[in-house]
């Protein structure tokens, strides 16, 4: 019985979403979770990530289907607008719950 519980707890750790688990991507998702949308520059300022770093993490988040990337022109200047989609919101909520469970179950 105890072995089964231990194995379930371990399974929870293995099931953690690795796309979100990376700290920089988690931070990006957290910002997009609390706002409606933000552009690339705003996220870069808030997260403190470099342009290349932010760009590559956003690519991974877009490939995972968690964020919407929309390009628009404002006064002939291109602007990339980013927002968390429904799938991303669910994934972020699940990740938080899973992490909380895992951390709560740690001994000590």
């Amino acid at each position: 019985m105890a072995d089964k519980k231990e194995s379930d707890d371990l399974k929870r750790v293995v099931d953690i979403d690795r796309v979100i688990h990376e700290p920089a991507r988690f931070l990006i998702l957290a910002y997009l979770y609390v706002v409606d949308s933000a552009d690339f520059l705003f996220l870069m300022n808030q997260t403190g990530l470099t342009r290349g770093n932010l760009s590559s993490h956003l690519t991974k988040l877009e490939e995972a289907g968690y964020i919407n990337v929309q390009k628009e022109f404002v006064n002939k200047i291109p602007r990339t607008i980013l927002s968390l989609n429904a799938q991303g919101r669910v994934a972020f909520d699940d990740y938080r719950k899973q992490m909380k469970q895992v951390l709560d179950n740690l001994p000590g």
Partner: peptide
């Protein structure tokens, strides 16, 4: 603290997938 960016700021390629 925030100098005006001199280059276009967007996602390298990420914004162009499927567009």
């Amino acid at each position: 603290k925030h100098p005006k960016p001199t280059e276009e700021l967007n996602i390298n390629g990420a914004g162009n997938h499927g567009r």
